[in-house]
Amino acid sequence: MPTHLTMEQLNDGLPMIEASPKDNGTLKAIVIRPATEKRVSLDSCELSPQGGVHGDNWAQGCWKTLPDGSPHPDVQVTIMNSRAIELISGDVERWPLAGDQLFADLDLSETNLPPGTQLRIGDVILEITEIAHNGCKKFAQRFGTDAVKFVNSPPGKRLHLRGIYAKIVQAGTVRVGDIIQKVDQYSP
């Protein structure tokens, strides 16, 4: 069983996380959850407004639904800062345990990516939503109680260390290594 970091060790890693690029970040990993507690790492993946992250179980039974029972589009995609999960997990092989689909070397703070901001990754355009993404009991079991306290702390909330939710505005393919750009700064 891996050793979990202490709060002091986690706080010592904050400067590395805060140095994440504000734009022109990089997609570091893609993970789908085909079933509860199952994780598959991919080199590329299709995303669409109808199917979410293809192969992921979002469309089969989302925790947040619309009045008609269909999965809520505002929680289609979870994005976590790759520097944060690198610090918290201690090993890239443990990143999938976080349960997020995209891991990005990008500043995910609300200051940098307020709700409504659009990002281009490969052919895909995502829009950041207002839904809060918080550390939970499963996150604590996998990474330790200090990790949950860290991501839910005032700096953790400010930097969105547990991650952010996004909805898919334009379908397409994302690939590990893709550049992530704010749409308003994108030029084809």
Rank of each mutant, 00 (worst) to 15 (best):
P2I: 10
H4Q: 15
T6M: 13
M16H: 07
P21E: 10
K22G: 06
D23C: 11
A29E: 12
A29H: 07
I30D: 01
V31G: 06
A35P: 04
A35Y: 13
T36F: 14
E37A: 14
E37K: 12
C45H: 05
S48K: 08
P49K: 08
G51I: 02
N57C: 04
W58D: 00
A59H: 05
Q60H: 14
W63R: 06
K64P: 09
T65G: 08
L66N: 13
P67L: 06
H72Q: 08
H72G: 10
P73K: 11
V75F: 02
Q76A: 09
V77M: 01
V77Q: 00
T78Q: 05
I79P: 01
S82R: 00
I85H: 02
G90T: 13
P96H: 05
P96D: 07
L102Y: 15
L108C: 03
T111R: 14
R120T: 09
I121P: 05
I121G: 03
I125N: 00
H133V: 14
C136K: 01
K138R: 10
A140L: 05
R142S: 07
A147T: 13
F150W: 03
K157C: 06
R162S: 11
Y165D: 10
V169L: 14
V174E: 03
V176N: 02
D184M: 05
Q185I: 08
